[in-house]
Structure formats: structure tokens, C-alpha cells
Design a protein around this nucleic acid. Structure first.
Lengths: 310, 310
DNA sequence: CTGTTAGCGCTTTCAA
DNA sequence: TTGAAAGCGCTAACAG
């Protein structure tokens, strides 16, 4: 192979010790005198030693690789979380390998397979697959896996509480005096869209509880559902929809609110309220779980960011 | 190591041949009868053999890894190109490892170093570094590197012709009858920003050639530079700026045009003209160069996408 | 055409 | 506390 830097073998030669001793020094294993350890560490530093992850991996160690499987980077929510995961893994000396499923279950399996065969130490997946068999498959891989976005039954999920955040959103909107809530629903198709389902369910329930007039529609028919004589509010479970419908809100003096609080809102100085999600915390937990096995699966905090659109 | 699937050793046992022969069959090397080859291939297929990239890498083969080093994923231009590169590498059975520099030279070096020590087979870099020493460093790595976005002197660049595309843009705008062109320039700081410099230079030159009134300003002072009595046009060398300034264009009936034609424009149905760049072709060439050594460094075609904002 | 052998850099056991 | 040796899965060189 291309020789990238110095090896343990070479360090051993230089220090006049065995490779095993070098290994002990470099990996904080016990059974080595602090004198020889220091010496080895010094030499390693001098020569800029970096472990060869491939060799390490093949010999039974970790690959220092985290697989990230998402739909795509179209939705800024994904690019935000991917960025954050990359940052946090970097801090732990992990590299991230990213793959896209385009919301196709077949591709998703292919991605996971490929990552598995790369011996990644763990994966973060926004699953489009679901079901008993699919979960068994994931579980059978025997590596830490966390899901984001959509939820599975037996796999850890890290993200916000969709039910609670939507409930609070609806209540907030109602408290601002809106009379008719229009929920702009994405296609749910047959894929795993648990996040969207949870949000929609929560919307229904809260509306019923508050005895509110509401409508559920898709983005193409949002305008048809506006009743100009009332105070309408558009509830968009994802910011992209909200951004696409801001012109309607303006036209009809309707309220509008999005979800995810993607960076773009700030960047374009859009006056759009959105439910923010502490992505950095999520990413930190994700990496912490995969790298160090730290389990914190309580929901990540959410918060309504107000910019005057409701 | 965790045993992911079957190995060549095992296939050799099953087929009753040597490991060397298995290697010949699996890697299309010569010196093997088609009979034994077929048999081996059949067994490999049956057991779902996948080469262990780590072992292969350590033994002198390829790592099947491509490193991608960009500023971040804030600018949708990056998420678009990263996505496209990932797709094309996937087709060649390569995986992509992504790292972010945040436009900091120190981080950039760190990313490149880490990727190098991962033995990636090549890298795609949008450099913020520049200069003799930096280029020497890149060249010294001895692996294929291509730059995107910003240009370096001695490293292949794949992208559009910034000079020509800006020239055509200016000419187009002028031909539409605009009298005063306002160029909204990003911070150039001390980093490599060759793409931006080329665009700006080309803007200057074309304006002079056409003897046009123009101004160059930053995004904060764009409005101050508009002369309501004239027909103004805002030239934005990146879509994000254009999107941020569309409200000005509307307010003053000015023309506005962006660069990169990011997907978001379509997604939000923004009436914004932009200079499109065939990212898919670029990504294909990038991967082709790294994986197969195919060198096509002629500029990628650009095209003005008209949506009525000029 | 095929087998044998050595070696990549690292981890892990077993002896000393 | 240290060394020696084996082995991970693969490639490459040489011999038959």
C-alpha cells in the first residue's frame, strides 16, 4: 500500500522494543512501564504517527467510520443534521461516510449493506423502510444504529417529540386568535413517515380537543382551503412547504408556521415562524451513542422561533 | 474483526483451489481457465462475497474511498455537488467521505491529512488555501485531486468558465435594456476565492467594454447603490445573495440574476434567473478522473435559466 | 494455468 | 513488564 506515515513496526525498531510494547503504549493498555511508554509516545509524536484504520480494522479493531444514510440533501433539515454529525464525529476522530436512499427502500438496503461491509462502527439512518423484517435485519447487523426523522419500534430514535411539539404549535396558533387551521400534509405513500404521521395525528387531536375548525390538504390545494372571511393559519410540518406558501399567507393575511427552522430562514431573513430543533444536541447524542455507547434517548428539546408570521 | 460475509480464503477452501486462484477469478486477472473461474464466481455469488476494502487497502489495493472537502453545506451549491459526487461514486462502487473546512485553512489541512491517512484513492476539494507551498503539499500526496469552486494553478479544476459565463450574463442583461449594473460582491478576505475573483474581473471588463454604468458593492449596501431613476440590475455571483435581494428587485423594479441555479429556486418557484451549471456532468467527470483517470478538464457548460427576473 | 509464500499494519494471545 | 508469534483478508511475486 501507499505508505502514509510511520507504522508501529517502525516505531518498535526505532525504540528498540517489540511491536506489542508499542501497541501497549499507543493504546493505553496496561502492562508497560511509564518510562518506555513515554519514550514510545515521544517517538510516535516526532514522526507524526497515525494509526492505519484499515489495518486496525482488519485486525479486529474499530474502523473509525460512521455511516450516515439519509434520503438526500434536498431538504435542508438533512444537510443541517449531516453537517452536525460530521462535526461531532470529527471531534472523536471518526469519519463519516454518507449515502442517499432517495426514499427508496431498495436503495436503502443497498446503502446499509455497503456500509456494513465497510465495517462502519455504527450507522445513523433516516429510514424509509419499516416493519418487523426490516427491523430484524437492522438488529442482526450487530452494530449500534440510531434513527432520525422517522421512527422504528425497536431501534433507538433521536429527535424531537413530534406529538408534543405539534400540540404546542397548534395551541400557540389558536391562542393568537386564528379560527381556521389548514394543515399542509406531504405525501405519505407507503414509506416510513412516522414523523409526519405523528405530527398529523397530534394536529388532529389538538384541534379536536380545542374544538377548532380545521382542514388537511396537500400543497397544491392549500389555497382552495383558505376561507377569506376567517382568520386562517397554515400549519406546515416542514419548512420547505412553509417557504413555498408564504405568498399565500401574505395574500390572504393568513398566519403561517413551519417545522425544523432550517438555516435558510435566517439566511434569507424570512419572516417565518418555525419550530426549532436543537440539531447540535441531537448530533452529539447520536455520535455519543455510536462511539461511546452513551444512551440518551429522551426527546431533543424543541422551541418555537417567532418571527412574526403567526 | 467482525466477520462480514465470506472471504477469499473461505471461497478457496470451498472450491478446493488456492487463494491466489480465487484472487485471479474475482479480479479479472489473467492466467486462469474459464472453467475454474466460473466455478469460483458462482460460489462467490452464492455466498454473497464482497471484498473487504480494508484488507484490500492494506495489501496495496485501492481503498474504494473518495474524500470530499468543502466549506460546509450551507450553500446549496455544495449540497448539490456533494450529492451528485456521491451518486456517481456509488455507481463505481466507491464510497465518499465528507469533511468540512468552514473556510479555514487550518481545518482544511487537517481534513486533507485525515483523508490522506485513510488512504482515500482521490480527493475533491473546494480549496480555501492557495499558494506555492499549499499546491506542493497537495501534489506531494501522490493521489488524484481535483478542485471545484476555486482554482489552483497546478491542480486540475472541474467547473464552469467563470469569465465567459459572467461575460455572457452581463451582455444578456445589457441587451435587455438595463442601464446600471450593481454587482453584489461577497467578502473575498485572504482566502482562495478564485471563482469569485474571476467573476468579478469578468464583470469589470465586460462593463468597460460595453461602456456601461456600474457599481460594485456588498450585500449590505446594495440598496444604497440603486438609482431609482435608472433601470437597475443586480448581478449576484451566487444565488443565495440573489435570493436575499429579490425584495429589493421588486421594490425598485430592478432586474436581478443569480449564479449556480440551486435547486431551491425551483422548489420555491422563485422567479429568479440564474446561471445554471451542469453539476451532474461535473460530478461525473470528477469521479471519472479519480476512479479511472479520465481527464476532461474543459469547462463544464453553463446556461442561463430564464424565469423573468431580468 | 495454478499453488505457494510473503507481507501490508495492527491486535491479541501466550510465554518469558 | 516485555517479547514472540499468529492471524485478520487481501495482493503480489515467484515457482512449478
Amino acid at each position: 500500500m501507499r505508505r502514509n506515515g510511520i507504522s508501529t513496526t517502525r516505531i518498535a525498531e526505532i525504540c528498540g522494543v517489540s511491536q506489542g510494547t508499542v501497541d501497549r503504549a499507543l493504546n493505553n493498555r496496561k502492562g508497560i512501564s511509564s518510562k518506555t511508554k513515554e519514550k514510545i509516545l515521544a517517538v510516535a509524536k516526532e514522526y507524526g504517527y497515525r494509526p492505519n484504520i484499515h489495518a486496525r480494522c482488519i485486525a479486529g479493531g474499530k474502523s473509525m467510520l460512521i455511516g450516515v444514510v439519509v434520503f438526500d440533501l434536498n431538504n435542508q433539515y438533512f444537510s443541517d443534521i449531516v453537517t452536525s454529525i460530521q462535526r461531532h464525529s470529527s471531534l472523536k476522530n471518526y469519519a463519516t461516510v454518507i449515502m442517499f436512499t432517495d426514499k427508496e427502500r431498495r436503495k436503502e438496503i443497498e446503502c446499509i449493506n455497503r456500509l456494513y461491509h465497510m465495517s462502519v462502527d455504527g450507522m445513523v439512518i433516516c429510514p424509509c423502510g419499516q416493519g418487523e423484517e426490516y427491523e430484524n435485519y437492522l438488529l442482526s447487523l450487530g452494530i449500534p444504529i440510531v434513527t432520525i426523522g422517522n421512527r422504528l419500534n425497536r431501534i433507538p430514535y433521536i429527535g424531537i417529540d413530534n406529538t408534543l411539539s405539534m400540540q404546542e404549535t397548534v395551541e400557540y396558533v389558536l391562542d393568537r386568535g386564528y379560527q381556521r387551521l389548514i394543515y399542509v400534509k406531504p405525501d405519505l405513500q407507503e414509506k416510513n413517515a412516522s414523523a409526519q404521521i405523528e405530527r398529523l395525528d397530534s394536529f388532529y387531536q389538538t384541534c379536536k380537543k380545542r374544538n377548532t375548525e380545521y382542514a388537511v390538504t396537500d400543497i397544491l390545494h392549500a389555497e382552495d382551503n383558505i376561507r377569506p372571511q376567517k382568520r386562517n393559519a397554515l400549519i406546515c410540518p416542514t419548512d420547505l412547504y412553509a417557504m413555498r406558501l408564504m405568498h399565500l399567507a401574505k395574500k390572504y393575511h393568513a398566519g403561517i408556521i413551519g417545522f425544523d427552522n432550517v438555516r435558510l430562514i435566517e439566511e434569507l431573513s424570512l419572516p417565518l415562524d418555525s419550530v426549532a430543533y436543537d440539531i447540535d444536541t441531537a448530533a452529539k447524542r447520536i455520535v455519543g451513542y455510536i462511539v461511546e455507547g452513551i444512551s440518551v434517548f429522551t426527546p431533543v428539546r424543541h422551541q418555537l422561533v417567532k418571527r412574526g408570521s403567526v
